[in-house]
C-alpha cells in the first residue's frame, strides 16, 4: 500500500530527436498526396493561381481590344478559343477573368470568415445570453437562401463587383460562425484554458492565443469549400447582370453575353463555363481532401 519511492530522473535524451511537428506535417502531406482527388484539386488550383498571376504575360491579346473584322471566329491557331461577337480574344479574356473570379472568391471568403470567426469565438466563449443573441441572428441569416440574401443586398447597394463580394461574403458569415462556435465550445472546456485562466490571463489573450490557434483546421476546410461556392455565386450574380459589368472579362458576364450565340458560336459561352466548372471542382475536391487529412481518424 505504501507507494514505492523512486528518485529516477525522467529520461528525455532517449526520446527521438526528430521533431514531431515536422513529422506531423509530413503525415498530413502524405495523406493529401495519397488522396489522388485532393492532389488533382490542388494542381487545378495552382494552375489557376498561376494563370491569374501571369495573365499579362500569358495572354496573346488585350482582353478589351475590339477587332470587328475577326468577330465570331471559331477556335484556330491564332485564337485558341476563338473570338467573341466583338472580336475579342476569348483566351485572353479568360486569363484576365481568372483574376476577377478568384479575387472575388478570396475576398468574399475572407470577409465572411473574418466576421464569422469573431461572432463564433465570442458566442462560444462567453456563452449564455451573448451566445443566444449572436446565434439567433445567424439563424435568421441562414433562413434565407444564400442567393436570395445576396440579391437583396445587391438590390440595396447597387450592382457592382465589390457589392457582389460583400453579398457573397455576408451569407458565408453564419456558416463560419457556427463552425467556429462549435469548435470553441469544445476547446474551451479543456484544462489548459482553465490553467491559463488561473494564471490570470484576460479574455482577449485566452481567445486569441489559446482558443483560435487550436480551431484552425475546421476553419481552413470550411474556407476552401466556401471558396468554390463563392466563386460560383459571384459568377452567377454577374451572369444575371448584378456583378461585373461588360466589357469586364468576368466569366459570368462572358457566359451571359455568349447566350445569344449559343447555336452559331457555342465556344463564346463554352470556355468561360468550363473555366468556372473546373475551378469550382478543383476547390471542392481539394476541400474534401483537406477535411480527410485533418481528420485524426484517417491516420493509420
Amino acid at each position: 500500500m505504501t507507494v514505492e519511492v523512486k528518485t529516477e530522473q525522467p529520461n528525455i535524451a532517449a526520446k527521438s530527436f526528430i521533431s514531431k511537428k515536422e513529422s506531423r506535417l509530413k503525415d498530413f502531406l502524405s495523406i493529401l498526396i495519397q488522396n489522388k482527388a485532393a492532389l488533382v484539386g490542388a494542381i487545378i488550383i495552382l494552375i489557376y493561381i498561376f494563370m491569374a498571376m501571369f495573365a499579362p504575360l500569358l495572354a496573346p491579346y488585350s482582353p478589351y481590344e475590339i477587332d470587328l473584322e475577326n468577330k465570331l471566329t471559331p477556335p484556330s491557331s491564332e485564337h485558341w478559343m476563338g473570338t467573341d461577337d466583338k472580336g475579342r480574344d476569348i483566351l485572353s479574356r479568360i486569363l484576365y477573368g481568372s483574376r476577377l473570379s478568384m479575387g472575388v472568391g478570396f475576398a468574399a471568403v475572407l470577409f465572411g470568415a473574418f466576421f464569422g470567426i469573431i461572432f463564433g469565438l465570442v458566442a462560444g466563449y462567453y456563452g449564455k445570453w451573448v451566445d443566444t443573441i449572436i446565434m439567433r441572428m445567424m439563424d435568421v441569416m441562414l433562413a434565407f437562401p444564400g442567393i436570395l440574401l445576396a440579391l437583396a443586398i445587391i438590390a440595396a447597394l447597387g450592382p457592382s463587383l465589390i457589392n457582389v463580394t460583400i453579398a457573397v461574403g455576408a451569407f458565408s458569415v453564419p456558416l463560419f460562425a457556427r463552425i467556429v462556435r462549435g469548435s470553441t465550445l469544445e476547446v474551451k472546456r479543456l484544462e489548459y484554458i482553465d490553467a491559463i485562466r488561473s494564471l490570470g490571463a484576460n479574455d482577449l489573450i485566452i481567445i486569441a492565443k489559446h482558443i483560435f490557434p487550436n480551431i484552425l483546421s475546421p476553419i481552413i476546410v470550411q474556407g476552401t469549400l466556401r471558396l468554390a461556392t463563392a466563386i460560383l455565386s459571384a459568377a452567377g450574380l454577374s451572369f444575371l447582370g448584378l456583378g461585373a459589368q461588360p466589357p469586364s472579362p468576368e466569366w459570368g458576364t462572358m457566359l451571359s453575353s455568349g447566350r445569344d450565340f449559343l447555336f452559331s458560336a457555342p465556344y463564346i459561352a463554352l470556355f468561360p463555363g468550363l473555366a468556372i466548372s473546373i475551378l469550382v471542382l478543383g476547390f471542392n475536391i481539394f476541400g474534401d481532401g483537406l477535411r480527410d487529412a485533418f481528420d485524426p481518424r484517417m491516420k493509420k
Binding site: 479543456l190 490553467a195 491559463i196 488561473s198 490570470g200 484576460n202
Partner: peptide
C-alpha cells in the same frame, strides 16, 4: 487577476492541460 499568482493549480490530465 493579481491574486491568481498566489493560487495555482495542477490538473489531472497532462494531455489536456498544456496548449
Amino acid at each position: 487577476r493579481k491574486l491568481r499568482g498566489d493560487l495555482q493549480v495542477i490538473f489531472q490530465d497532462p494531455f489536456a492541460s498544456l496548449n
